[in-house]
Simulated assay, not measured.
Amino acid sequence: MVRVAIAGGTGGLGRAVVEEILATKKHDVFLISRTEAFKDDPNVKVLAIDYDSPEAIASVLKSNNIDTIISTLGIFQEAQQKAQLNLVEGAVQSGTVKRFAPSEFGLDYVQNKKDGVAIPSEAMRDLKTGTVDKLEASPLTYTRFVCGFFLDYFGYPHYPTYLPYMGIILDIANGVAAIPGDGEQPVTFTLTRDVGKFVAESLSLESWEPTSYIVGDKVKLNDMLKWAEGATGKKFDVHYDDVAKLKTYQVTELPSNVPRYAFFPKEMMFGMLAMMGLGMAEGHFDFKGPTLNEKLPQVKTTKVKDFLEEYWTGK
């Protein structure tokens, strides 16, 4: 049995991770959070910490005998990275924490930095890799869960997910496609709940590798478009955004994103979507090497075609 604390466990991915760990009924689960999510769940103990004080963090972790930390904190700004760096330092000082999974997920930021790739941006990449550098220099065992793009986004509004909606590649409800590149480059997609299952099962592994690739499914975007059209029974208005266009931070507008400009400015959204699309078009979501799937064959993942058919057939 592991005594595991999840940081950011009330967020979109974090909540799915917490629920999947709880579902195993194998571990003592703690939540590092400032909110009251799970407050009525007797199987979850909420730990209040001061992210500005590694010493205070260490005291809380030690007093609760925490041995593993999973971070799902959103790392978009220096202040958020500082919180995670302090969490690492607190884990080291605690003397009880032996393993730490930083908030990585998505892309392989370490490999991208080695390759000189700045997706979705150099700043965000370096915020991610900065924590890995600190872990590398620490006595802690760590792994980076790298899972590709979240499949959840393609089930909205029919699939129940904790992620806020963002339209990318396919606006299935409106029958519009904005495909980066030529659509022939394989892309890794993983459902957040499947990520949670892999994290949960990883807690029982005797050892962790520095990188844990998770592949829910790896498909070509043209095939994904074909399956979406087949499920809905409608022909999409299809656009291909070539690499040159993506590098200017421009993408084909998806109708479902327009209402979201009120809280996510269009220019910022276009820039992020363009860089994520560029990552797909250039193969950065086509992970190479051993996967966690091979080590944990008992975890069955959701396939893209099955997902689209389940949530979009006849809609």
Score class of each variant (00 low, 15 high):
Leu170Pro: 03
Leu254Asn: 00
Cys147Phe: 10
Leu170Ser: 02
Phe76Trp: 14
Tyr311Asn: 09
Arg34Pro: 09
Gly283Ala: 03
Val117Phe: 03
Val304Met: 08
Leu170Lys: 01
Glu104Gln: 12
Val17Phe: 12
Phe270Lys: 13
Asp108Thr: 10
Thr291Gln: 01
Lys82Cys: 03
Val238Lys: 00
Lys45Leu: 13
Phe263Leu: 02
Val97Gln: 04
Ala83Phe: 07
Phe270Trp: 07
Tyr240Ala: 01
Lys247Pro: 13
Tyr249Pro: 06
Val299Glu: 03
Tyr142Pro: 04
Glu36Trp: 14
Pro265Ser: 11
Glu267Asn: 07
Met124His: 14
Leu296Asn: 00
Val176Ser: 06
Thr72Ala: 11
Val219Phe: 02
Lys197Gly: 09
Phe285Gln: 07
Thr141Gln: 12
Lys247Gly: 12
Asp171His: 06
Gly196Arg: 03
Ile169Gly: 00
Arg3Asp: 04
Phe100Glu: 01
Met124Lys: 07
Asp241Leu: 08
Gly314Met: 11
Tyr249Trp: 15
Leu246Tyr: 12
Thr68Pro: 09
Leu278Ser: 05
Gly181Phe: 08
Glu122Arg: 13
Ala7Trp: 08
Thr302Val: 13
Ile32Pro: 03
Ile70Cys: 00
Thr301Lys: 01
Ser256Asn: 13
Lys303Gln: 15
Leu205Asp: 02
Val258Cys: 08
Glu267Cys: 07
Val258Glu: 09
Ala16Asp: 09
Val132Ser: 04
Tyr159His: 08
Ala262Phe: 11
Leu273Ile: 11
Val299Ile: 10
Tyr261Met: 02
Thr291Val: 10
Tyr51Trp: 14
Asp217Pro: 05
Ser59Phe: 12
Leu151Ser: 05
Gln93Ala: 15
Ala83Cys: 14
Met275Lys: 13
Leu203Trp: 06
Gly216Arg: 01
Asp241Thr: 05
Asn112Trp: 12
Ser94Arg: 06
Val187Met: 01
Leu191Val: 04
Pro180Thr: 03
Gly196Ser: 10
Phe76Val: 15
Ala91Leu: 11
Trp208Asn: 02
Arg144Trp: 05
Lys305Tyr: 05
Gly233Leu: 11
Ile21Ala: 03
Ala48Arg: 15
Met276Leu: 15
Glu229Pro: 04
Pro157Ile: 12
Tyr159Phe: 12
Ser204Gln: 14
Val29Gly: 00
Asn222Lys: 14
Pro259Glu: 06
Val132Asp: 01
Arg3Trp: 13
Ile69Ser: 10
Met269Pro: 02
Leu225Gln: 07
Val251Asp: 01
Asp241Ile: 14
Met124Asn: 01
Phe307Ser: 01
Ile6Met: 01
Thr72Asp: 00
Gly8Ala: 00
Phe189Thr: 08
Asp115His: 12
Glu201Lys: 14
Ala118Lys: 07
Pro157Trp: 05
Gln80Ile: 12
Met124Asp: 01
Glu267Gln: 13
Ala37Asp: 06
Ile168Phe: 12
Tyr159Glu: 04
Val146Ser: 05
Leu47Met: 08
Ile57Asn: 03
Ala200Leu: 07
Pro297Phe: 11
Lys295Arg: 15
Leu31Lys: 05
Thr252Cys: 06
Leu308Val: 08
Ala274Cys: 08
Val176Arg: 02
